[in-house]
Design a protein around this nucleic acid. Sequence first.
DNA 1: GCTGCATTTAATGTATACAAACGGATCCGT
DNA 2: ACGGATCCGTTTGTATACATTAAATGCAGC
Lengths: 224, 224
Amino acid sequence: MDKPDFEKLPSLPPEGSRGQAVFEALRAAIHAGHLRPGMTMREEQVAERFSLSRTPVREAFARLLGQSLLEHGGGRGLIVRSLGTTEVYELYAMREVLEGAAAGLAAHHAGPAEHAALQSLQERFSALSADDIEEAVHINRRFHDEIRQAARNRYLDGALDQMADGIALLGETTLSDPERHAKAVTEHQAILDAIKAGDATAAESAGRQHIHEAFLKRKTAFRS
Amino acid sequence: MDKPDFEKLPSLPPEGSRGQAVFEALRAAIHAGHLRPGMTMREEQVAERFSLSRTPVREAFARLLGQSLLEHGGGRGLIVRSLGTTEVYELYAMREVLEGAAAGLAAHHAGPAEHAALQSLQERFSALSADDIEEAVHINRRFHDEIRQAARNRYLDGALDQMADGIALLGETTLSDPERHAKAVTEHQAILDAIKAGDATAAESAGRQHIHEAFLKRKTAFRS
DNA sequence: GCTGCATTTAATGTATACAAACGGATCCGT
DNA sequence: ACGGATCCGTTTGTATACATTAAATGCAGC
């Protein structure tokens, strides 16, 4: 249970209340990998780091606990959750469903502007060299975000946010493998084609398949 | 923006911290219909009602805000969220997906004991007289809960909880109509048959269809 | 009589002080 | 030396007091 490197934590966004700002900062830190599963934090530590009192920190912790990003560590602070193999399986099973649903809904609702945006992202994604992992992750995220927006469903949005939190806890991306990147390009193309054709059933199927492939890749990474 | 009848609020469960207790009490009050959309609450009001300070109440509010059950009412307290027609559409679209997924996963994972439990609930549900709405709602909920448990996916669980919160905000059940009850019996039977047969595809389809029918019923109720 | 601004007021946001609960270490008894 | 109970320190849980902010109100000017 090592301690996080608080120096690297992002500073607080000035918008909104401090409590919400702390919440977002910690969530961002987990997503950025600065806070990793197993790390422990005390309320006072975080409060000092951000030059605040414990009160807004507690508020942030309450929300993070509610989203299962943190858990009580008995006497010794709060712990960044780590996912067991069962949970990873469940996470990907759910993500298959949700990304499938997002693609399906996007096929219904996406307009020409969104088709073009997706097309552009897809072209940039496929043109990337295999070693530029950071950019690949970035564009991949924007591609999926665009689909999510086109789906126009705030509940789906919320559920996908939960998925993103879970994936963040897992750490390393599956896109680090060049072979996986190449496959992802093909899978994205299938999703995009179905969305442009307005074929919800095909889009849903392609979306599910895409996550399923990522899951298979993730599973092999486990055993190594 | 009337004020809630705080007298009818359930008392605090003794387990856990007071903050969590308040959270659950308020959530239960919304589900029970004692707190209805548009009602406003101030921190101090709730604190007095439960003989607490504002601190644990704030913690509860933070979580309720995180789950979009409450929203800031500007200067005048917090407001129980009310759903616009767009959100209702989105809610049911998402619920179709999730209940479908639950049925599909249940078809994979459910064992004989769960088949029997579902069968029993289905028989009790179909035997109900048309005017016993309260019991119908109760058994209906247990039926869906049983499927959810059989699905064995905690992320799906969380997402369905969100759906339940949203439905609670809508108020009246669609089961109040005798005709709807009869249809629901048939639809439940289709889900049950598919689960018992281990046919995930059919189960998912039946689950979606069931929610879709409820949605159609809900839409007609709007216009009245 | 209406509009705009200043004032007032009531609510939330934050800080600090205190209480309770939990773990860990130590000391006693066997 | 080993087991157990107790003491102590640390950390969270709660209460209260203070700061801040945003809406409501009243007044003045037009």
